[in-house]
Simulated assay, not measured.
Amino acid sequence: MELGLAGRRVLVTGAGKGIGRGTVQALHATGARVVAVSRTQADLDSLVRECPGIEPVCVDLGDWEATERALGSVGPVDLLVNNAAVALLQPFLEVTKEAFDRSFEVNLRAVIQVSQIVARGLIARGVPGAIVNVSSQGSQRAVTNHSVYCSTKGALDMLTKVMALELGPHKIRVNAVNPTVVMTPMGQAAWSDPYKAKTMLDRIPLGKFAEVEHVVDAILFLLSDRSGMTTGSTLPVEGGFWAC
């Protein structure tokens, strides 16, 4: 299916690893022009070698002022993928202020800031656009030791809806994808214990975790005009986890 992304300028946060990296690679293959944002320079360097022509930006999105400096003059952006996130897992009774603040800074506040930068540019140019926020199945289902992480993603789902409501009149669509555990290197490390994995897999009707391409395909669809009548949605990519 032709997605019509060639020539579009797309900004992807959390581009260095996992879903973000897979998204950059897939967008590059379509002929899109990609601005890849990561806090790790080495990841950006290797990504540039894999995808010549992408524009790397190294910044910690948890730092508001640094993000404004890095992206405030990024130039015209047509599409945005808010993928950057941290998962600082702690039992509820052991949640720290530091974990709470860092999680909300990156997982929610940065989404607001980067989306404001991109949306203001789209509105000033008078052109339509699309934003995809990478959320989680944990936004709507409780997961042990994920109290802060699940809270950030629940807030992200509602932010997606409000963004869609307010930006819709400007022809800017906003949607979220909500994956289950994804078999990135981080996902494999976190869920490699068979007993731990079984507790989650038993709640997934399809009986398996997601691969990066499952999430990337959903992101590309929501960025494209093929989803031109879809906004304010949360698209589950979780094998039926929410059905249980």
Rank of each mutant, 00 (worst) to 15 (best):
I19L: 11
T23C: 06
T231Y: 03
A87R: 11
A189L: 14
Q116Y: 07
D157E: 14
N175K: 04
D45A: 15
A124N: 12
I123Q: 14
T234Q: 15
N82L: 07
L223A: 02
D43Q: 11
G4N: 09
R141T: 13
L222Q: 02
A29D: 05
M1L: 12
G75K: 01
V216D: 07
C51I: 08
G129P: 07
T184V: 09
R49N: 06
V34Y: 02
T96G: 06
R102H: 10
A190E: 15
N107Q: 04
S227K: 03
I19P: 07
Q41E: 14
R39F: 01
G20R: 02
G121N: 03
T234G: 14
G7I: 04
K196Y: 00
L235P: 00
T96E: 09
A36H: 08
V106K: 02
V34M: 05
V57R: 08
V182K: 03
R226L: 13
V111P: 03
T184S: 13
L235E: 04
A142T: 12
E2W: 13
V77N: 01
S135T: 10
R33S: 12
D78G: 12
A190Y: 10
F209C: 04
V174D: 03
Q188G: 15
V134H: 03
V134N: 06
L47F: 07
S103D: 10
A32P: 06
K161R: 15
A15N: 00
E50F: 00
G16F: 01
R203L: 11
R39P: 00
E2R: 13
R203N: 05
L88H: 10
S115Y: 01
L165S: 12
C244A: 12
H170P: 00
V118K: 08
R33A: 11
V182E: 11
S136N: 09
V77E: 00
I112Y: 13
S151E: 00
Q137K: 11
G187Q: 05
Q25M: 10
V143S: 13
R49A: 14
K208Y: 13
L47K: 05
V174M: 08
G228P: 02
E98G: 01
V114C: 04
L5R: 00
S233P: 04
M200F: 14
A155F: 06
G207N: 10
S147E: 06
V34E: 02
S233T: 15
T144L: 11
I54M: 09
A70C: 10
L223D: 01
